[in-house]
Structure formats: C-alpha cells, structure tokens
C-alpha cells in the first residue's frame, strides 16, 4: 500500500473515532450529545433557590433536546416532533408556527452554533426554572429547497421550564431584544 494511502486511512480512522466519542466535560454544565446543540448552563445567578447539580445537568440536557426538537419540527413542519419537549404556551405557539408555515409553503432551517445560558430564577419549591439564553444561530427560511432568506444572528431568548415526571419541559420560549 502506498504511504499516502496508509496515512489517509489512519487519519480517517482517528477522525471517525473522535466523532463517535461522547462529547461531555466533567462539570456537567456543558451538553453536546450527538446531534444536539451545545448548551452551556451557568447556575451561579439563580435565585431564590440554589440549583442542585443534578438539576443543572437535567436542565442543560433537556433544553438542548428541546432546541433539537424545535429545529427538526420547524424544518420538517411536523408538530409531533415537539411533543416531549414543549408544553403550554411554547408548544402551542410553535405548533401555530408550523401550521402557518405549511399554509405558506415555507419551512425554517436552523444551524445551531450553541447556547450560553444563565439560570436566573429557580422557584422555592423547585418546580420551575427561568433561563436567559444567548443563542448563536443561522436561520434560513426556505420555500421547498429554495433559500428565500438566510441570516447569521445572535438571539436572546427567555425560557421558562417546568419540571415534569422525569424531565424539564419548555413552557415559555420568547426572543427578546436584550436582557
């Protein structure tokens, strides 16, 4: 075998293994599971209750999953993909968006470049948590395969999550001009 070919195989193998390894750091505040957006969650500013380590991990995990579901649902115009991650107002409004997109023959594509999230409120009884999320996104609006509009933006979101049986669900998700 030629040396160049051998080198190429080795590089490709290493790259493949690196890709398959789960990407978590040791702090538990940083989630980047396969296919999920990167969420970095800071809990230092949460009041009136301190966020427990296990809650921090669960919120980061479930918030990342919610964004993945949001991106999938808005791209495929499938409200059923939102189900497990969004409830209440957030679920209803995203469902309306999908319904309107279908009517207009549009869909959105999100390239998610990560979320820097601050927990700012954790309710005294531990059933609700409010987040401020600075998200780096590329948003495209498409008509079929045709890209009508594309923008790379930093968007500020306020999210309210409530505790369900064994996960956190997004109840409110609103973009705001600033924090």
């Amino acid at each position: 075998m030629k040396p160049f070919l051998r080198l190429a195989i080795v590089v490709a193998s290493v790259a493949g293994v690196m890709f398959l390894l789960p990407r978590h750091n040791g702090d538990g505040d940083h989630v980047l599971a396969a296919g999920r957006p990167e969420v970095t969650l800071n809990i230092q500013n949460a009041t009136p209750r301190q966020v427990e380590d296990s809650t921090q991990k669960a919120v980061a995990r479930d918030y990342a999953a919610a964004w993945q579901a949001l991106a999938d649902a808005l791209e495929q115009n499938r409200p059923d993909l939102l189900g497990a991650n969004f409830v209440g107002t957030a679920g209803k409004k995203l469902g309306e968006t999908i319904s309107e997109q279908r009517k207009a023959g549009l869909h959105q594509r999100f390239q998610d470049k990560g979320h820097h999230v601050n927990a700012i409120f954790y309710s005294p009884e531990g059933s609700a948590i409010e987040l401020q999320d600075t998200a780096e996104l590329q948003i495209q609006v498409l008509d079929g395969d045709k890209v009508l509009h594309s923008e790379d933006v930093t968007v500020h979101y306020v999210a309210l999550l409530t505790a369900a049986e064994n996960s956190w669900k997004v109840r409110v998700l609103e973009a705001v001009p600033e924090f």
Partner: peptide, 11 residues
C-alpha cells in the same frame, strides 16, 4: 413579502 415569527409565517 414574507413575515416569519412566533406563531406566524406569512407570504
């Protein structure tokens, strides 16, 4: 003209 926002997608 297109308007896309929460709960809205208008052409």
């Amino acid at each position: 003209l297109y308007v896309v926002g929460p709960g809205t997608a208008i052409k």
